[in-house]
Nucleic acid binder design. Sequence first.
DNA 1: CTGAAAGCGCTTACAG
DNA 2: CTGAAAGCGCTTACAG
Lengths: 325, 325
Amino acid sequence: MRRPTIHDIARRAGVAKSTVSFALNGQPGVSESTRRRILGVADELGWRPSSVARSLSSAQAGAVGLVLACETADPALMRLVAGFESVFGPREVGLLLQFAPRTELAVYHSWWHQRRVDGVLVVDVRVSDPRIALLGELGLPAVTLGRSALPSVSLDAETAMRTAVGHLARLGHRRIARIGRSPELVHTAEHTAAFLDAARAMAMESAVCVTAEPDAAEAVRRLLAARPRPTALVCDTDVMALGALGVAAQLGIRVPGELSVLAGEDSPLCLLPHPALTAVRVDLHSYGAAAAETLRCLLAGDRPPDRTFGPPCLVERGSTGPPVS
Amino acid sequence: MRRPTIHDIARRAGVAKSTVSFALNGQPGVSESTRRRILGVADELGWRPSSVARSLSSAQAGAVGLVLACETADPALMRLVAGFESVFGPREVGLLLQFAPRTELAVYHSWWHQRRVDGVLVVDVRVSDPRIALLGELGLPAVTLGRSALPSVSLDAETAMRTAVGHLARLGHRRIARIGRSPELVHTAEHTAAFLDAARAMAMESAVCVTAEPDAAEAVRRLLAARPRPTALVCDTDVMALGALGVAAQLGIRVPGELSVLAGEDSPLCLLPHPALTAVRVDLHSYGAAAAETLRCLLAGDRPPDRTFGPPCLVERGSTGPPVS
DNA sequence: CTGAAAGCGCTTACAG
DNA sequence: CTGAAAGCGCTTACAG
């Protein structure tokens, strides 16, 4: 099959290539009748623009990129990516994915030089993140998921943690803990602060935060070895919550009687265990879509305002309940 | 920052653009000394080829594509994708991802017309799969994960099921069951047949197969309501195994005493529950890499032989044990 | 071994 | 409203 070009259309319609281009792109300066004729021929020939030719002359890649740290086996990412795609896919903007072994900066450089993407989405923003500065220098449009110096969309940590801690307080918990991802992440920093604030506001007796890295199960085990031990555990991700359930089972600690467990995303994983996981729901698909939408604005030339996505809401299931003593 | 082009290099090195192009691409017909001089200038200027310009003249997109069904929230996919990327990323071949709402065919058409990708990887091959025929017609190079009329890399269902059933037989199980994905998938069909073969070979008293769709938990519940009920359950995916554990807990069925559960991929999820999941390990990252490698051959002009990936191996943990009666 | 030229399929000023 | 022409940054025959 040979792919038709605007040259074929022009010849067939008896006009110049430029006229075809104008007509196809909805530019003014073509009479309604010729436009219609051209569109008809294009349709008849099954013409579709060559993305590379268009990119070369318009200096637009027609694609956006996402660089992932190699280790990221996080199932949550898939839903985020699906969210990005729900915005760009229908617009025929390609989504380029690259896993980078501690060389994310090199990928951005490479993409910029190769003119591969028009912009990028940045996940897992760190408190001190060299990617932010580089993207600024390169002038590569970017939107970060999590607050940064670049345009961003972030989660409402305050509401999320107030919701979680409030739920536990109402159930009667007084000693609570939270397990989060790396403390270097902006996400973790914000949620930890919000968790401690909420715990203070609700006069918790104790509220401690630990990191799940490098070993979440070990962290939970340490947490549950404390005396008196916390009666509730707020988990950053659903996978961590699943792991906490496993550790509790291993130690013979009953959920929710002796330990309440709260999950952090509410993916389908929450429904798998028994008891099913209560979660503070963050719709990662929509969150991804919101970020993609922001990048789209940026690429269109607007300076989009920083947005807060949310608010999260509580989905009550079996893994939380009043503490029994 | 302005990006340097071969024109800049040519001027600076005092040669023609074509000479620069030849030198940069390692083509013969350039003296060693000029080549070195040109490479030096290119380096000095920080030149990188424009992927779109190169694509336009070479008629190569420099990218491969993957279309995913919209519903695919399967965490396993992320590792497969990482495997693809481990082959293409280092070669600066982009990986284009698109989620399609029951219109995967349209995406292939669109990509072909737009010359967006040089080839595609196809996952979740169905027994009767219209994508295979379309890709053939378009002449879009493709490799399928799972046997098809196109070049493919597939899993060793026989060994996997012999390993799983053999393990259970050795433990003393006589009534076993298997839960798999949609029966329309080649993967499911092959594994179901292999499971039944292995069960016959090991003289199992009963061996039944059910589908996890649309509701895996419900399917497991039905399976466990049978009298006499199976004493072991072989699960296609880790998520299903996690779900099976949850259902068992809900019904008060002890694992592994009253029910052994085998997982199907051995992702990190297997380590979360207690007891941890015994699994027939399939390294999805390597599987993805093998498929990507095959596509690379295909794009290089070879006709790669169909490959079987594997063999899978057993990773024994706590979720399987002798049946107690 | 090297250079001038055409071409990939579009877009976009610039003249008519 | 329409057309002829240059240009995007490369590759690749084709002459010297």
